[in-house]
Design a binder for these strands. Structure first.
Lengths: 160, 160
DNA sequence: TAAGATTGAGCCGTCAATCTTT
DNA sequence: AAAGATTGACGGCTCAATCTTA
């Protein structure tokens, strides 16, 4: 195996890290300025909204790329804020299910317009659709390569 | 201005965030397993190595996208580890210069082979040179767009 | 008054240990 | 003994306040 990345690869790596950090920081800053919680909250609530009956923390772990203890504390905060609830699991009493509440669904709806605008402002503005599709296709190889087929979409709560 | 990002744009955004998080986590994990400090240390030492006489913290702030107080504490740790030294600035006695030490240069040299291999393993492996160049070009638009012309390269301490 | 930099308090992530259930 | 999940201790980041010099 070749251990020496080529110059284009090194440049792609550097720009992947830098561009994501910049764009993510800019988007998070806008959401924060609008009085909203971190994007992490959006991500986990979006996953939970897709599953009526709730999701096991161990499942969230693989979907969100977070360690178990981080899930545990993140769910604590979301629960304290009233956006999720914990449900005991009857088949396996070690486990539990985390489910979104109405409050959580409202937060998703409220955040999406600001989130959407920030994505357009800091990413979409710089590409036409074909370029965005090319970028998505290239980045997709990095994801499908090491993650089991987790669907990576950031689709809105409503397309309105 | 159009606030509604298209579907390809949303997909590109989601994959940008996810692929970077995955790749960065994988690379950092390899470096950590090899007994090395976080990539952040590599980044700042690399900047310092390019300037013989040292760099002002306020300058590092813009190059590394870090807040001043974080720079301050990061430099504390690097200084305690012996990799950098602080120099008083004579023209403007509010400021100072941070300079790399021999120990810091050695760390850069030691880390690069492991870092390089991890880049190839988690990114380079998935692209040929032309694809990597396309990816870099697309991502470059996000960077040049909002950052003043900071050169984003991750070039090695030695090309050997 | 503002710029460069640091510091204290509090929040969050990480590591290892723990608890419960299988 | 192993899996799912939580907890305590500790380190790093963030916010606001502070200190020094321009």
């Amino acid at each position: 195996m070749d251990d020496n990345p080529s110059r284009p690869v090194i440049l792609a790596w550097a720009r992947l890290v830098k561009s994501q950090q910049q764009a993510l920081a800019a988007v998070e800053a806008e959401l924060k300025a609008a009085g909203y919680p971190p994007l992490e909250w959006y991500d986990i609530l979006l996953e939970l909204q897709r599953e009526e009956s709730g999701i096991r923390p161990v499942e969230l772990e693989s979907r969100l790329l977070l360690a178990q203890h981080n899930i545990s504390r993140l769910v604590d905060r979301l629960q304290k804020a009233g956006h999720v609830e914990r449900r005991r699991c009857k088949e396996d009493r070690r486990g539990q299910f985390v489910a979104i509440t109405d409050s959580g669904r409202l937060l998703l709806q409220a955040m999406w317009p600001a989130y959407r605008a920030a994505i357009q402002q800091h990413v979409g503005k710089h590409f036409n659709d074909q370029e965005a599709a090319s970028l998505a296709a290239l980045l997709g190889r990095l994801i499908s390569a090491s993650t089991a087929g987790g669907t990576v979409t950031c689709s809105p709560v409503s397309t309105a």
